[in-house]
Design a protein around this nucleic acid. Structure first.
Lengths: 142, 142
DNA sequence: CCGACTTTGACAACCATTCTCAATTAGGGT
DNA sequence: ACCCTAATTGAGAATGGTTGTCAAAGTCGG
């Protein structure tokens, strides 16, 4: 389930675990503020080390998954299969990602939402979700 | 580079290696005929074993990549990050995949193609490619 | 301040994928 | 057909991201 997967989760909040604001979780959230492109769990772990706040690698993974579950971060897979993360706005959106520098732009498009629903309905599919990522070369890297 | 990545490869055929029709490659192509949903390299390797034609795992991986490069198969990542493969038509298309049984429908949509190009252009991005996957529950599994 | 429950961290375990390299095979002359 | 050379294969080792384990430390309600 990727973060681009909103749109059919009408359930208010199915009794989620408390989610305590521990030092480590806050630290992760804090590093997430420091960039606006997608980074791997390992990179984030390293950044945490650099800034003094050493957080265990396993904890970084756990925290990122947790945040993703709670819709606090977007997840996607880089072209070589790594999971990469990024803070995101809480509305449904997609990403336009620069293939060379990783710069990311959040984009929205009712047209696509409508199209996917229509196509799915046409084939009798229900409980639809979708992933859309656009890759390209940004103006600065061109 | 995923198979949904056509559209900017205007180069005719940049001196591709010969690509010999070996026994193993033919065997892989043959198994690919036997199903119409996405399967992992490991599953394909196992199917090959079952049908007597034992092909080395490494070779299966190599062959699938090769076929993907040549546009003979579609590649995508399952939700848990595995690469999965499927024979495909040679036109640009996307997939509507059943979350529970894996049934796959190829779908086309000029609207989406136009939309992604427009969005990308609007942000000054060039050399665009995109991935779009739609997941849902098919009529038979509903 | 206490006890129950969470969370953490170091490290081992997993597992898909890739690498290595010697042995085999296919193709193109001759 | 027969060589020669380059491509291909297979078995196993190596890699690397991610998850599991479990004892130690932290957090919260009462």
């Amino acid at each position: 389930m990727t973060s681009t997967d909103r749109g059919h989760d009408a359930i208010p909040d199915p009794a989620r675990p408390p989610l305590r604001p521990t030092k480590q979780r806050l630290a992760v959230l804090d590093v997430l503020e420091s960039f606006d492109d997608f980074r791997s769990a390992q990179e984030i772990h390293e950044l945490l080390g650099d800034r003094g706040a050493g957080v265990g690698l396993a904890t970084v993974y756990r925290t990122l998954q947790l945040l993703a579950d709670h819709g606090e971060v977007d997840t996607m897979r880089s072209e070589d299969g790594e999971s990469i993360y990024r803070r995101c706005s809480d509305t449904h959106h997609h990403h336009l990602v620069c293939r060379s520098c990783g710069a990311t732009v959040e984009v929205e498009g009712p047209a696509v939402e409508r199209w996917t629903s229509a196509i799915a309905a046409e084939h009798g599919f229900s409980q639809i979700s979708h992933n859309l990522e656009i890759f390209g070369t940004c103006p600065r890297c061109a």
